[in-house]
Design a binder for these strands. Structure first.
Lengths: 343, 343
DNA sequence: TGTTAGCACTCAGGGGCGTCGAGTGCTAAC
DNA sequence: GTTAGCACTCGACGCCCCTGAGTGCTAACA
């Protein structure tokens, strides 16, 4: 593919991303200074179509890029946009104004990304269960209940009200906490060894108390990892995309966005790959083969925390999405650290 | 208004709620057994229009109810639907499956209501600041930070990571907690008297430590009462309403739903009124004068907790919305109590 | 006097049709 | 290899007409 073809392809993709209308040869001749006439561009476009980079609804409608065309554009033609300092400070201000607690980071990140890109944003939060147990403490609530507070090395803090078995005192609970802290020290929450349970069993003789202890642990665990782990943003933003002009189309994608398991699967498939773009038919899942996904994984001190992604029509501002996610990539760690994650 | 007119009005409202199409005289004659011909019904409908209960887009389109018409229907004609036992157990199951922590009750309630009614649901959660301070405890995190856990009488538990001033030890923090617990005992969080602050000041000599104490208190306070207090559900459900067939209309209402302050204002206006219906033009806010709102306030042991509401087009299944909210009214207390709210 | 049948009238929605404009593909000339 | 020219295609738009649902009015009926 010679250079002129590439410039034509680039022109088509850029114009189509901007206008959402099929692009014709004259438009390109007018708006891009290629130094050749529409007729020549037409010839080039016909070639590009033969090569599979462009598509045609019918004769006499302009061209639109194919998945392959977008792919070539993203890999080679696109000039990477950089966030301006102003944009960066805006992002900073967003977090400072809205995020008060570590738990809110993920939802707000999703909101921010969707707001900037006008597409759906997905944030796969780190699994609490992947982080190491730090300590469990009890606080007295009243004579029959107390509050269990579980902390992990990653900085998660989880609280629960637990009923105390009749006859048990708050001191029993504190003793139980000491036992649990001893036995679970350093375990990651998703892989508590059987031995730890046996040890707890042997140290807590009272049956009811032992049950309560297990209850505390399991309830602390089963919370975050379920449906709370995926955060969505921008289901309203996409209404401004011309692709979603008719409500049926919107309903379709919203329905899909409700299937959390599916989304997690899609995101998990990209885990650990750094910044990655999946375009149109490259998607395995049929329902989004007219969409593209840009994913990035974010880290803290070298450890993988989770994935953030932008999901939108293939006609997406890839440069913008990628630079934003790229920045987030680095920036999220700072936010997380500032809010008390353990450094 | 004689009985036949009422029966005609009822027929028009019911049919229109069901079909979302203007209702004609023949349709009514066919579908409702009024014992008179379409011509007679036409005459009655003309009268009802004169009286302001029905409206006309143009000659020769069927009638649709006016706000006044809906009002008459809701107040007198509508047969109140009751939730079946099956529906009740479904609601119960919903909560048991999805709500693990008290904080999730509100979001899930919004989801449930919107799911059942296919309209937007709003849940105004109780203000944490309205409940009384119970106690503040610290847990050690590492050598420079600790976790503050604040509990209120209503059962809210709030945790925060706070930095310890250099030189301060965890024991200092525990002492501080004792002072604060003494001074704030019984205060409601939105009305901490100046005297309490003075007392804390006098007991904590270290300047930095005092600042940290204030920080803990204020941070615990400013959290829940802000944007976290209103929960929304069903922004996707409304897409299935024919009123929102065109995207512009959807965008309009979604935009409005983002204005939390406005929504809170609207809901707050209904606080304490029990079950209440506001129809179309009865709404003060212009943007929703083609919508209706059904609100209900929920209580626990006689104390007002918050408001739940259904927002949808005037063509709404009032009976269903009202019976659902009515049931929630009673039921929410149970859920809340089960999850550890103080009884 | 209330009810009904009949009839003229109205209006939205849908199909058919011609026009316009943007765009292509092909060919011949440069 | 590039370009101008030209025939062709197709969607969008506006126009017209038809149809069907519905009304309002009037006159006849019980």
């Amino acid at each position: 593919m010679d250079e002129r073809k590439q410039r034509v392809l680039q022109a088509v993709v850029q114009d189509y991303i901007e206008s959402a209308e099929p692009v014709g040869s004259r438009t390109i001749a007018r708006r891009h200074d290629l130094g050749v006439s529409p007729a020549t561009i037409r010839n080039e476009m016909a070639d590009l179509e033969m090569l599979g980079y462009l598509e045609h609804i019918h004769t006499s409608s302009g061209r639109i890029p194919s998945s392959k065309g977008y792919r070539f554009y993203v890999d080679g033609l696109m000039q990477p946009t950089r966030l301006t300092d102003e944009e960066k400070t805006q992002i900073d201000r967003w977090y400072r104004a809205r995020v008060k607690r570590i738990e809110e980071v993920f939802q707000e990140t999703a909101r921010l990304i969707s707001h900037v890109t006008k597409n759906v944003a997905l944030v796969l939060a780190p699994q609490m269960t992947k982080s190491a147990f730090r300590c469990l403490q009890f606080l007295p609530l009243d004579d029959r209940r107390s509050v269990a507070v579980l902390m992990t090395d990653a900085g998660f803090i989880e609280n629960r009200i637990v009923a105390m078995p009749s006859g048990a005192s708050f001191e029993d609970f504190q003793r139980m906490a000491r036992v649990i802290n001893d036995c679970l020290a350093g375990c990651t929450l998703d892989a508590i060894p059987k031995a730890a349970y046996r040890k707890i069993r042997s140290e807590i003789s009272d049956e009811e108390l032992y049950e309560a202890a297990l209850d505390v642990i399991s309830r602390a665990l089963d919370d975050r990892e379920g449906r709370n782990r995926l955060y969505l943003g921008g289901t309203r933003e996409i209404l401004s995309q011309p692709e979603f002009r008719d409500v049926e189309r919107v309903k379709e994608i919203l329905l899909m966005l409700e299937e959390e398991e599916l989304l997690k699967e899609i995101l998990s498939a990209h885990l650990g790959d750094g910044l990655r773009v999946t375009i149109g038919q490259e998607n395995d899942y049929k329902g989004i083969q007219d969409c593209s996904i840009v994913t990035a994984t974010y880290h803290l001190d070298g450890e993988l925390l989770g994935t953030i992604a932008v999901l939108g029509p293939t006609r997406m501002e890839y440069g913008k999405a990628m630079s934003l996610l790229g920045y987030m990539n680095e920036h999220l760690s700072d936010v997380v650290r500032r809010l008390g994650w353990q450094g």
